[in-house]
Simulated scan of single mutants.
Amino acid sequence: MRNRNTKRDGLYSGDKTRAEVKDLHSRILVAIRSAETISERIEKLRDEELQPQLIELLHGLMRNWQIMLESHETQNRIMFEVKSFNCPTYGKFCNDSHRLATLQLVAELHNWRSCFVAFLCSQKSYIEALSGWLAKFIAPEVELCSKKRSSAPTLRVNGPPLLATCHEWLASLEKLPKEAVSCALKSFGKDMRALWVQQGEEQKHKRKVDGLAKELERKVLAFQRTESRILGSKLSEKDIEVNVRNRIEYLAERKNMLDMLRKRIDAEKLKHITVMEQTQQITVKGFQTGFYSVFGSLVEFSKASIKMYADLVTYCETTKVPEKEDEDEPSYVEEMSSYLWG
Rank of each mutant, 00 (worst) to 15 (best):
K238G: 02
M336G: 00
C166W: 03
G189F: 03
H25W: 10
L130R: 07
V313T: 00
I273M: 10
M260V: 08
Y250P: 00
L134W: 04
Y332P: 01
G296N: 03
L109Y: 01
K307A: 08
E241K: 13
G286K: 02
L298G: 01
D15E: 12
L340H: 05
L173W: 05
L235G: 10
V21F: 07
L45Y: 14
K190R: 09
V157S: 14
S13A: 15
I78P: 00
R8C: 03
E141M: 09
L69M: 08
G200L: 02
P177L: 06
Y90L: 09
Q123L: 12
E141R: 09
R207H: 14
H110F: 08
A304N: 02
R207C: 13
W133P: 01
K324T: 14
F116N: 02
Q278A: 15
K83A: 06
D259Q: 11
T274K: 14
E141A: 12
R4F: 11
T314A: 12
A310R: 08
D259M: 07
A267G: 10
S71W: 06
N76A: 00
K307N: 08
R77M: 05
N5V: 11
Q278P: 03
G132V: 13
V244S: 14
R245Y: 03
A129E: 07
K148Y: 09
A164V: 01
E108C: 13
L312I: 03
S337M: 10
I138F: 05
G132T: 12
L235W: 12
R18G: 05
V244N: 05
Q224P: 02
K7A: 14
N158T: 11
G232E: 07
W196L: 11
K16I: 11
C316G: 01
V142I: 13
K320Y: 03
A267N: 06
D311Q: 08
Q278K: 05
L162F: 03
L134F: 06
R156S: 15
T314N: 14
E323R: 09
L11S: 01
L50A: 06
G159W: 07
D326N: 11
I42T: 13
Q224H: 09
H167W: 12
E43D: 09
E325A: 03
C94V: 06
A129V: 05
T17M: 04
V313H: 03
E323I: 07
I38H: 00
V106R: 05
A194V: 15
I240N: 13
R218Y: 08
L221T: 15
S338N: 12
E334P: 04
L212M: 15
R2T: 15
G132R: 07
S293P: 01
T283F: 08
L163T: 01
V220G: 01
K214C: 12
F119H: 14
A31N: 12
H272N: 14
Y309T: 10
L61N: 06
Q51R: 10
E329L: 10
D328W: 03
A31Q: 05
I42K: 05
L221F: 14
K263R: 07
S151T: 02
V313Y: 13
K320D: 06
L144R: 14
H59Y: 06
S187I: 00
L105F: 13
V197E: 15
N246D: 10
V21W: 00
A213I: 15
A267H: 06
A135W: 03
T74R: 15
Q75S: 14
C316D: 04
Q198F: 04
S150A: 11
V321L: 04
I230M: 08
T279I: 03
P177S: 04
L170S: 10
I248G: 12
A171V: 00
K44V: 01
V321T: 10
